[in-house]
Structure formats: structure tokens, C-alpha cells
Computed example of a mutant assay.
Amino acid sequence: MSDIEKAAQDAVTAARQSEQFAVMLAALQATQQAPATPPPAPVQQSSGSAGKWIGIGVGASVFLLTVALSAVAVAISAVSLTICVLVLRSVWHDVRKGR
């Protein structure tokens, strides 16, 4: 197996590990953020249910935007970590070869 094939295989392995790491971080963030939300305030009973559904829609939208931004942050972190690991691995191989 040539060096290029080994490097490609290592890159694929690192990418898989970064994806698994990103999923674990997302799950960890989700569990940490769930209890941090304050309990909902008591709502006055109203004659119509439109206000209740608007409030639910707004709350769900804010929650989903938070989850989406967290996922983007985790993905950026995973890509950065992968690139850092690949560069350090390359430097380490060069040092071991005496270049």
C-alpha cells in the first residue's frame, strides 16, 4: 500500500471519527441545555386558542434555531479538529523521516 493510499485511508478514518465526535458533542450539548431552560410561566386561560398556538410556534422556532446554530458550531469544530489532526500527523511523519 502506497503512502498516498495510506494517507487517504487515514483521512477517511479521521473524517468518520470527527463525525462520531460531532454527534457525541451534539448529544452532550442537548443534554446540558435541556435542564438549563427555565420552567414555563403559568399562562392565563384565554377564550381563544390562537395565542397559545402562536406562543408554541414562536418557542419551537427559537428552540430549532438554537439547535441549528449548535449543530453548525459542532460541525465547524469537527472540521477544524480534523484539519489540525491531519496537519500534525503530516508534521509528525516528516519529523520521523528526518526531513
Rank of each mutant, 00 (worst) to 15 (best):
A36E: 10
D10N: 05
A41C: 01
V87R: 11
G57W: 02
G48K: 06
Q9D: 11
A8N: 02
L25W: 08
A22V: 02
H93D: 03
V23Y: 11
S70V: 03
T66L: 13
G98R: 11
T82D: 07
A73F: 02
V74R: 03
P35C: 05
D94F: 06
E19W: 05
P38A: 15
I83D: 01
V58E: 04
L64R: 04
L25R: 14
G98C: 01
P38R: 13
Q20E: 14
A8H: 06
Q32V: 01
G48S: 14
T82I: 10
Q44C: 00
A75L: 07
V91F: 15
I83R: 02
L86E: 04
Q33P: 00
Q45T: 00
V79P: 00
A8Y: 08
I76Y: 12
P39H: 04
Q29P: 02
A71K: 07
L81C: 06
R89N: 14
S46W: 00
Q45D: 06
Q20Y: 05
A68W: 08
A34C: 08
S2M: 02
K6H: 07
S18W: 04
E5T: 01
T66W: 02
A41G: 05
S47E: 13
A75Q: 05
G55K: 07
V23F: 12
A7S: 11
G55D: 04
A14M: 15
A41L: 13
I83F: 03
D3C: 02
V43S: 14
Q45A: 01
W92R: 09
V12C: 03
V62M: 09
L65G: 08
L65V: 08
P39C: 03
G55R: 11
P35T: 02
Q9H: 07
L81N: 15
G48H: 12
T82F: 12
G51N: 13
V85G: 00
K6M: 11
R16N: 10
V62L: 13
A73G: 12
G59F: 12
P35F: 04
S80R: 11
R99G: 03
S46L: 05
K97H: 12
A68I: 15
V91P: 10
V23K: 15
A50R: 10
A50M: 09
T37L: 15
W53G: 06
Q9C: 00
T82N: 11
Q9E: 12
G59M: 07
T13L: 14
A34Y: 10
A15S: 12
A26C: 09
G48M: 04
G51S: 14
A14I: 14
D10R: 07
S47N: 09
A60R: 07
L88Y: 04
A27G: 13
K6V: 00
F21I: 04
G55C: 03
R99M: 02
V67A: 13
A41Q: 11
G59L: 05
I76T: 12
A36N: 10
L64W: 05
Q20P: 01
G57Q: 05
P40Q: 08
G51V: 01
A41N: 09
S90Q: 10
P35H: 05
Q29D: 09
V62Y: 03
A8P: 01
V62W: 06
S70Q: 10
A15R: 05
Q44E: 12
A78V: 07
K6I: 06
S90L: 08
V58Q: 09
L69K: 13
A34T: 03
G57I: 04
Q32E: 08
S46A: 09
Q17D: 14
C84V: 13
W92P: 01
T37I: 13
A7G: 01
A60T: 15
R96G: 00
P39E: 11
K52H: 08
